[in-house]
Design a protein around this nucleic acid. Structure first.
Lengths: 217, 217
DNA sequence: TCGATCCGTGACGAACCGTCAACTTTTGCG
DNA sequence: CGCAAAAGTTGACGGTTCGTCACGGATCGA
């Protein structure tokens, strides 16, 4: 107590070297996996392909992830963890059903269209097989949506309806329209959001018209 | 040339034995695959598991299907081929947008809830991984839907809107709500159809109310 | 009845998986 | 500093699945 605290201080402001290397390696592997998945698709990729894209040895992979599926889940989780607070905040500040719906779709489509995610990794086999992994983090996102729907109904923002179906409908439209949007030359998150929002608020007959082929030729 | 057509007639009303065996074997393998996929999920199943569930040898599998993915596609195709004409017919006889939308959803949900398909095979790994294979047959189903949407718009059943997005929205709601429906104790295709139809026709505020907890306490 | 053709068979080589004993680096402590 | 314990890395290994292929038996056409 009285003499001197014997400077146990060699602690750098950052972590120890071992911990630092672990974080680096994990990131190294995650980055490699993203690249490999985007390039050849989830199905065709092997754990060896991923590790070959790093300077590490094959056994090391398994110190960080149990399998190809688990690292894919980790990548999905990064996305889920990034978008969930954005969606939640948007819905929290909504006071009308219009804000609730439009905020949800606008945030979702903008996130998907942003370069924050590589959409090929999400769809991740551009050809025929689409794998969707529902990790706890992803499921938590769905649960939050249903909670928020129920809260909004309780607050009288709209009449009580089947929350499970409504959640499913919102999620289905979000995912499928996002996919359609990303197939276009230049994705238009705003347009997709307007479409989805108006569909939910007023139904098909209130959707913005799309002008037909130019009349003048 | 001129003498007599030498009765090439030993043709039975059905096909030759070879052809018959081939059809049998193919069906044998398909049935086994359905069972195996339903039991242990697509990811965990191996080609050997499937062939072990038949009296055939391992090599024979590859005379009929190139891989596990291909046989899964074949199973999906059976479903797609079964439901597509039903959907098409329903949409063909629609004269109003109400009939178009409600016919589509009702037919889809009833088909899913019927025992004509094993829904576990479609979702087919109940736990975390969902694989969706977009085979040509499946894609053709989407194309038909978009065609029919465009035809309906041309006929003035509703104003011209973005057909890609509308198709995506219908498909997204159909698949996700179907999944939600099938998670219930007793699936209610009629209820799901009413929900989806009303969502598309009038928007969220016109959905049938779900009575809240009994008001009288 | 007899060749030609087709198809089922199961063993085989290749590829990938996940593990593990040996080795290297880091850490804690005198 | 030096040393022993702890932690992490390495790559080779046994086990499993994959897809092929040479063989042999069944079917077909004449």
């Amino acid at each position: 107590m009285d003499t001197a605290i014997p400077t146990p201080a060699p602690r750098r402001n950052s972590a120890g070297k071992r911990e630092q290397t672990k974080a680096q390696n994990r990131q190294l592997i995650l980055d490699a996996a993203r690249g490999v998945f985007a390039e050849m698709g989830y199905g065709a990729a092997t754990v060896r392909d991923i590790i070959r894209a790093t300077p590490l040895a094959s056994g090391t992979f398994y110190n960080y992830f149990k399998s190809k599926e688990e690292i894919y889940q980790a990548i999905r989780d990064e996305v889920a963890l990034a978008i969930r607070p954005l969606l939640r905040e948007e819905r929290m500040k909504a006071t009308t059903v219009e804000e609730f719906i439009s905020g949800t779709f606008r945030t979702f489509f903008e996130f998907v269209a942003s370069d924050r995610i590589d959409f090929r990794t999400i769809r991740h086999s551009a050809d025929t097989t689409r794998v969707r992994v529902d990790t706890p983090e992803v499921i938590a996102g769905f649960d939050e949506l249903r909670e928020d729907i129920e809260t909004a109904m309780a607050r009288g923002m709209f009449a009580p309806v089947d929350a499970d179906y409504l959640m499913a409908a919102i999620a289905g439209v979000a995912f499928e329209v996002a996919e359609s949007m990303m197939r276009r030359e230049v994705p238009d998150p705003a347009g997709a959001a307007v479409f989805a929002t108006q569909l939910f608020l007023g139904g098909i007959r209130t959707l913005p018209h799309k002008r037909a082929a130019a009349p003048g030729g």
